[in-house]
């Protein structure tokens, strides 16, 4: 009892000791959105001024992600793929979950079947327009994955998982990594360095959209794969 109380006091003291310098630092931060803040006066001003031209897409975020920091993004795509590999290795061999005894409601079934294709179209729209509008490969990919998970709620996960053969699923999940690696290597002849995009605007746009599509399809397939593996519907 006494020890517990001492522990609590110690925790409180430690938290206070941590909080005071943090708060002191926070008071000295410039106001959010202030024009003179260091974050707005150095590199980001350059991004905003010339990013659209140099990055090759009207949406600055996409330009930064796919061009200036392509290596980081490649790492991210690899991490997503690796996450699926890890989950599949741990959970993929687990026995199948017991069947849900209650069939889905006919209302839910009908509405999800009706809306599913529209969600897919919206996901594709987000992916393809990632260089102009908010969104892009990652966001659209998540929407695709969400659609597959939604469908497997009404259609039985195994049916959805079997719509594509196990081998094709693996290729689909690797699409992001493969397309990114391909574009990166193509940078050598086209721009003179790895991960470079060519200067010619038409070609650059085609490559940007290809990257977005690859990331989107790969991301969606990985997310759906995570769900199938955890729900025990994965036989690959």
């Amino acid at each position: 009892m006494n020890r517990r109380r001492a522990g609590r006091i110690l925790t409180a003291v430690l938290i206070a000791a941590l909080a005071v310098p943090l708060m002191y630092g926070m008071v000295q931060l410039p106001a959010p959105g202030h024009a003179d803040a260091p974050a707005h006066t150095n590199v980001s001003a350059g991004y905003i001024e010339r990013g659209a031209e140099l990055g090759g897409s009207e949406n600055l975020v996409t330009g930064v992600l796919l061009n200036f920091r392509a290596l980081d993004t490649f790492g991210e795509v690899l991490v997503i793929f690796t996450a699926w590999l890890a989950v599949a290795a741990v959970a993929g061999t687990a026995s199948n979950a017991e069947r849900d005894p209650v069939p889905p409601s006919p209302v839910v079934d009908y509405v999800i079947r009706l809306l599913g294709p529209f969600i897919a179209i919206f996901a594709l729209f987000v992916i393809v327009n990632g260089h102009v509008l908010p969104g892009g490969g990652f966001q659209g990919g998540v929407l695709l994955g969400a659609m597959l998970i939604l469908l497997s709620l009404v259609m039985d996960a195994e049916t959805v998982a079997r719509a594509v053969s196990a081998r094709s699923w693996i290729w689909l999940r690797a699409t992001g990594v493969l397309v990114f690696a391909m574009v990166a290597v193509m940078g050598l002849p086209l721009a003179g360095y790895l991960f470079g995009l060519p200067d010619e605007p038409g070609l650059r746009q085609v490559l940007t959209v290809a990257l977005e599509l690859g990331i989107g399809i790969g991301g969606g397939a990985v997310l759906a794969g995570l769900f199938f593996a955890i729900a025990g519907a994965d036989r690959s």
């Binding site: 209650v102 409601s105 209302v107 839910v108 509405v111 009706l114 809306l115």
Partner: peptide, 20 residues
Amino acid sequence: ALLLISSPTAGHALARAAFR
């Protein structure tokens, strides 16, 4: 239109889960 379709469906699904 999406809201008018999806929201009652979600409400129905919740109530049905409780009922069943």
